[in-house]
Design a protein around this nucleic acid. Sequence first.
DNA 1: GACGCCTTGTGACAGTAGTCACACGAGAAT
DNA 2: ATTCTCGTGTGACTACTGTCACAAGGCGTC
Lengths: 226, 226
Amino acid sequence: MTRSMSARDLSTFSGVSDDALDELASIARCHDYPKNNILFYQGDPPGSAYLVVEGSVKIALMNEEGKEVVLTLVRPGGVFGLIAGVDGEPQPANAITVERSRIAAFSADAFVGWLERHDLLQQVVLRELGHRVREAYHKIGEHALMGVKDRLLYALLEIAEREGQREPGSEAVVFTRPTHQELANRIGSSREVVSRVLKEILTSELLQAEGKVIRVPISALVVRED
Amino acid sequence: MTRSMSARDLSTFSGVSDDALDELASIARCHDYPKNNILFYQGDPPGSAYLVVEGSVKIALMNEEGKEVVLTLVRPGGVFGLIAGVDGEPQPANAITVERSRIAAFSADAFVGWLERHDLLQQVVLRELGHRVREAYHKIGEHALMGVKDRLLYALLEIAEREGQREPGSEAVVFTRPTHQELANRIGSSREVVSRVLKEILTSELLQAEGKVIRVPISALVVRED
DNA sequence: GACGCCTTGTGACAGTAGTCACACGAGAAT
DNA sequence: ATTCTCGTGTGACTACTGTCACAAGGCGTC
């Protein structure tokens, strides 16, 4: 793992001392993976905890026919595989790289040991799990209580929040949207439906698009808070 | 909080010493609530952590029209309100009694203090949150990847696992099912649809019913493991 | 430039699931 | 006993979603 990984401002490990991060780096095995590489399957025994150094990884479920739903997207600085690592149960979902990614892996024992040595269970793991629960609850609500159009809208707003760039000289945030298929996987729908509904949203709604770039007025973002 | 509450085999606190439980009891405010009593709303600031002593509480989301989806059902010995108590963010969902219930409440600070004093963060909170995440992920998968019939089937099997009684003299488990409306809320559907689909399941499928009592062969339960 | 692969747009269709309306039965309450 | 409420069963209808089929555009590789 290169020194660059221990970026001090990454969300999950913010507030962790440099010494601890250096020690963490020393127990990591770091590798590059191509796009769509499967890191582990749902049901696998807990082996390692993982840290995304570069790229991104989707945690997702699939059914027998190959239909997929993305539970969460882990971006640089985020960890995954934690739950199984912490409670010793099988992995609750599949982990797959979304793009070419650099991933650091730690043996579950070594990682938990590190957490305990530095008294970071609360700071790191609780925060992370709490966030996952919130995220998951929100997603359940979306699925059970809203239709495709609203789910898609929320997904777009969430992306805007997480990776949108402030557009120079305007009160809006821009980002290039993922493919229709990826959006469909995120919201648990199908490519064709996303194609149609997205058009509808972009014409009538509060978002505009130029090509694959979507503009979201900042006013639309703040409103969305739950 | 009566002494009876500190039952030593309750899942969430199994393995916790009697001394610690006694101390916990000493900081609790314990009250009885009628059916359908709202304990907190989604968005409320974190106030307390709660323990179900008797009865049960549903953690659920609602939309504007009053449609509801149950995220998890907390039974005696289970805790809720934890996430907000631990991370200081607003409550992620509503908490409502399902039946007449006795609930012990702890101020968030006092509860966290107790956990830390007895070094139980890992044992109690991590276990609980990990379980919640798994449960939630499973539910998302159900919603995104399965239809009403399968969701209902899973819901019934889950109930059978959690509160089914071994039927004397047969290889089956029995339980009295909740109302159609409650089932609909659990799976995010509607009363009428549950009424129809349930009939379908009970005639063709692996479950049988006599009145409101449902029989599930044990063989059907073990298979369902993920 | 030609080929192939990925992504997209769209019409037509099918099926699932949700809603509305209404009736019936069992129990609780008065 | 009468009345009310709650849970239930069912038919009819609607609408939202997903699927299939097919065409076309973009972009990189050889």
